[in-house]
Design a protein around this nucleic acid. Structure first.
Length: 486
DNA sequence: CACTAGTGCAA
DNA sequence: TATTGCACTAGTG
């Protein structure tokens, strides 16, 4: 349970058990978080103190009573801020959905995790020995300070990036040092195992609730500036998936007996939203034709027929598509692709030459945010966006990236939240239930025999949640582990 | 025990 | 010198 801050769903659950129908509570907390500047929040704290000896007694009760009392005040502020619709149509209906998901929880195979922990522990000890041997001394491999001393002073390797306190030892830096010495590679291997063991394998079993035998994460509705959910205690939105070792952890998430996990994820939702904002052009065309988007981008940038796009060209195009959504610069693209800045800039120039509508979207997004003082999603969610006229170019560029990214990432958040409400209603009364949301993915637990039918219903709900100028596409998969459902 | 810094996991 | 998060360990006070 949260120790600080307002917790909407806990409050809603508590009041529900007390027989009080208070779906509004959660939304009210949203309002406080979204709309009130810090000075106003002090007012909330003062008001909250008046409820400290309420019969419900618990911290949750206090919060619940507080938020209930704030209803009219907050409704007014919602209206003033133009976000009544987001509150009423998206956030409020989502509250009971999230409460159900948290109550449902998800099962992990604790024995498998414990076996994995033992294995990783042994391998970590080996890797640690190897690091010490390569360094010619013992040191704390987990200490960036000690590691930097060994790499850059004792071994005389050339440092790359700087941090506030010295030379960086991050993965990118170590990867570039692999040719110079064997130690950087050994450190990277140790770090991968250490990350998996410490953050996931050893952390998940203690998170299992002894009463339910399942892990009940907590979804925060009013944390992310763009309107995304966040997950904590434990965070189930960053379970590894990219490496084989990481996927071994995902395999420890297991469906209940007789059930399977159904994973439904939006395909390229952020680029589709960008295409929608663009209105026309090759981005829209390729989505309408259900083309391989990165291949098409490569074809456009490098001026070759789609069939002649090489893997390297597609990889570069993918990095560009990824970066476009965030307002990337040539520096970062060059670093990612291990090419020169000049070359990276020519890729970016080539992109905008073929995708002028994307440039127009970016310019328009910045202009609108500058005019209004906030960035806005398709459904009217707002994020304050000051700094677009800052004199410092770095500050200004940062504000511009927010102006560009927020309507995209935030609209994706709006869409999946709406979809969640529909899916929840659609499976109500059946044995299927929503368990997790991971930004563009919904994970359900479904009786094995029903999965095909449920998959189609979830797909229809997700794809039909809005009609944009390009179709929304959902990929669905199912299996008895989360990993295999992908 | 609270806090910052560095690092790395996900979309 | 790319967006949004959460959480680990080391190190400091």
């Amino acid at each position: 349970m949260e120790k600080t801050g307002y917790d909407l769903k806990e409050a809603a659950k508590l009041l529900e058990s007390a027989g009080v129908h208070l779906a509004g509570i959660a939304g009210d907390v949203m309002l406080a978080d979204y709309l009130l500047v810090p000075e106003q929040k002090h007012g909330l704290d003062d008001l909250g103190k008046r409820y400290l000896d309420h019969p419900l007694g618990t911290a949750l009760g206090e919060e619940a009573q507080l938020t209930w009392a704030l209803d009219s005040l907050l409704a007014e502020k919602l209206e003033e801020n133009g976000v009544t619709g987001v509150y009423r149509d998206i956030e409020l209906p989502l509250v009971p959905v999230l409460a159900d998901m948290e109550r449902a929880g998800i099962a992990v195979d604790v024995s498998a995790l414990q076996a994995l922990s033992t294995e990783l522990g042994a391998r970590l000890a080996e890797e640690e020995k190897r690091c010490h041997a390569l360094a010619g001394q013992e040191f704390n491999v987990a200490s960036t300070q000690q590691l930097a001393e060994v790499l850059f002073e004792k071994l005389g390797l050339k440092g790359g990036k700087r941090t506030k306190t010295g030379w960086s030892t991050d993965a990118d830096t170590l990867d570039k040092l692999r040719e110079e010495h064997a130690l950087p590679g050994a450190i990277l291997a140790w770090r991968e195992l250490s990350k998996l063991k410490g953050t996931y394998v050893d952390a998940l079993p203690p998170a299992v609730n002894p009463k339910t035998g399942r892990i009940h994460t907590h979804f925060r509705q009013a944390v992310a500036a763009t309107g995304r959910l966040s997950s904590n205690d434990p965070n189930l939105q960053n379970i590894p998936v990219r490496t084989e070792e990481g996927r071994r952890i995902r395999r420890c998430f297991v469906a209940a007996p007789g059930h399977v996990f159904l994973s439904c994820d939006y395909s390229q939702i952020e680029l589709r939203i960008l295409a929608h904002y663009c209105g026309d052009g090759p981005l829209c065309e390729s989505f309408r034709n259900d083309e391989d988007i990165h291949r098409r981008t490569a074809s456009e940038i490098f001026g070759v027929m789609p069939g002649l796009v090489t893997p390297d060209m597609r990889r570069a195009a993918k990095a560009i598509n990824f970066g476009i959504v965030y307002g990337m610069g040539a520096f970062r693209l060059a670093n990612d692709l291990r090419i020169s800045r000049t070359e990276a800039q020519s890729y970016i120039d080539g992109y905008f030459a073929r995708y002028p509508q994307v440039r127009a979207y970016m310019d328009g997004a910045i202009a609108r945010a500058r005019e209004k003082g906030y960035a806005e999603t398709l459904y009217g969610r707002r994020r304050p966006n000051q700094g677009l006229d800052a004199k410092n170019p770095m500050d200004r560029a940062g504000a511009e990236r927010i102006a560009i990214n927020t309507p995209i990432q935030g609209t994706a958040a709006d869409l999946i939240k709406l979809a969640m409400v529909r899916v929840h209603a659609d499976v109500a009364g059946t044995s299927a239930r929503l368990l997790l949301q991971v930004h563009d993915e919904l994970v359900l637990e479904v009786p094995e025999g029903d999965v095909k039918e449920v998959a189609e219903r979830v797909r229809a709900a997700m794809e039909g949640v809005a009609t944009l100028c390009v179709p929304l596409k959902v990929d669905a998969g199912w299996a008895s582990t989360w990993d295999a459902a992908h």
